[in-house]
Design a binder for these strands. Structure first.
Lengths: 194, 194
DNA sequence: TTCCCAATATATCTTAGAGATATATTGGGA
DNA sequence: TCCCAATATATCTCTAAGATATATTGGGAA
């Protein structure tokens, strides 16, 4: 008996529908507004998964007419809620590491290109950091009394700790790479006035 | 003209073959010994990708007989080397975040289960940390003079910074969750002597 | 008023990748 | 001699990333 690999998109959508019913488009929008900093879904997952969830009776679909347009509104069922709860309590599956930047660093190549990769990466982490900070103050204002607020802050805090560490790594790495560049030039006897 | 999405496995294998020719099995072993802490490949990628690389003339295959067994040894070609170099210099594609632990935290659920998730996660990060530390001292001993050593240390350093930050996040989070538990019990008037 | 565009809404297609599994050989130790 | 772990190659399924097609709707500019 093969252990069924779990479709995480299912549970992400169930979790979102638990808060409030909505259309596929709506769910995508809500992902962007709430969990995008650690979870993303594309159209290619959302619409087929909703259909699949309906077949399994984990969600129910109701069609809302608005002019010529038919909105497919999904809401979670009792069974869906049960599945969600079970999943929330189940062990977190380990993450598989795959870091393109590190792969390129490991293989070496042209030093100046590597330095550029690190610089771009650092900029991106700094962008993320300021993003987390503004999201946090926004949350504290808009949802100050929300019972789930502590959990939301915890997820933001994760991002903050992570990117701060990565920024420090970038700083260290940039110093190391500068030193290497220096030594290499020294070795080759190239005096470059900069 | 659609931008061809890049098959990262290709370049990972080319990078490994650049150092030294080898069989698919050999490459898997070398991944485990060198880059597994930030990059992994399964059989399902390795063997088909090697065949594909051969078709594209990026690697050349030679069959070595050893008794009844035929070893498929692959070595990188001049063209393959050119592709690899171009890839090493090309921009790093952004990482798509997908963190199951944070998703479960965000959706809330039973507090004790969340606490267990965090505890397990913390243990895993601590395991990784001690792993990085021993790998580093091992590297410094075995490859002290290797020209690529600084780059290898940089990748290990990335892991160390990352997991140290995540361990600190776990500590903070555990405190926060404990406080929440306390408050909840207080609210419900449950006096639990522990 | 009409035209255009951005936002809303649903859907599908291809490729990459994760993970499991099948199968055969080989070398060394009980 | 037998067995098992390591070596070696290969395939299959499902999940997910990303791009794209298509139609509607509401609001602002010409």
């Amino acid at each position: 008996m093969a252990k069924k690999r779990l479709n995480q998109t299912q549970f992400a959508l169930l979790g979102l529908l638990e808060t409030e019913p909505g259309t596929g488009y709506d769910l995508k929008r809500r992902i962007g507004e709430s969990i995008a900093h650690f979870w993303q879904e594309g159209w290619g997952q959302i619409y087929p998964t909703l259909k699949q969830l309906e077949v399994e009776n984990l969600v129910r679909r109701s069609v809302m007419k608005s002019g010529k347009r038919e909105l497919q509104v999904y809401r979670i069922t009792r069974l869906g809620r049960a599945h969600l709860t079970a999943w929330l309590a189940s062990p977190v599956s380990p993450e598989v590491p795959r870091n393109e930047l590190l792969l390129k660093l490991f293989f070496g190549g042209q030093l100046d290109r590597i330095q550029e990769h690190v610089a771009v990466y650092r900029k991106e982490q700094e962008r993320l950091l300021s993003n987390y900070i503004s999201l946090e103050s926004q949350l504290r204002r808009k949802a100050a009394a929300h019972p789930q607020l502590p959990f939301w802050l915890i997820t933001l805090n994760y991002g903050r700790h992570r990117v701060q560490a990565l920024i420090r790594w970038c700083e260290e790495t940039q110093k190391t790479l500068d030193t290497l560049e220096w030594n290499r030039e020294g070795t080759h006897g190239i005096a470059s006035a900069r």
